[in-house]
């Protein structure tokens, strides 16, 4: 039996609703994953430190504030700084396609637009984590 996939779900930035992040967290739990939910108003520093302590396979970031570029980039930078390159990064939110392309080339594994079926997200994560664990 392989160990369950561990996912950190975080909501960086200043905007105040986390319904979307909570729905995703619950869906990934229902898909058999261990989901660490960290709540609102997380700084990239808090997120990456939590990911380190929790030894997660995946960091999922939900961003709706428009500040996605600096937030995601800072997370990528910190993940590299702390030696957590093996962590799969995924994002969700309303993000313009140019920015999606940029972020996916800079280290975010995939960005999911609003309304993505949660089953699709879970499947993508499962595949990505399986590949990373085999490589490790």
């Amino acid at each position: 039996m392989s160990r369950p996939i561990r996912v950190l779900v975080a909501k960086p930035g200043r905007d105040g609703h986390d319904r979307g992040a909570k729905v995703v967290a619950a869906a990934l739990r229902d898909a058999g994953m261990e989901v660490i939910y960290t709540g609102l108003h997380q700084t990239p520093e808090m997120i990456v430190e939590a990911a380190l302590q929790e030894d997660v396979d995946v960091i999922g970031l939900s961003v709706h504030s428009g500040a996605h570029l600096p937030l995601f980039r800072r997370v990528i930078e910190l993940v590299n700084e702390k030696g957590l390159q093996n962590t799969v990064l995924v994002g969700g939110g309303i993000i313009p396609s140019d920015d999606v392309r940029a972020l996916e080339s800079e280290g975010i594994g995939k960005i999911f637009g609003p309304g993505t079926p949660t089953a699709e997200l879970a499947d993508w994560i499962r595949t990505a984590v399986t590949t990373r664990r085999e490589d490790a």
Binding site: P4, A25, A26, L28, R29, D30, A31, G32, M33, E34, V35, I36, Y37, T38, G39, A50, E54
Partner: peptide
Amino acid sequence: FTGGALLGDRV
């Protein structure tokens, strides 16, 4: 049922 868990104490 699913083997999953929602760990929310960190909040």
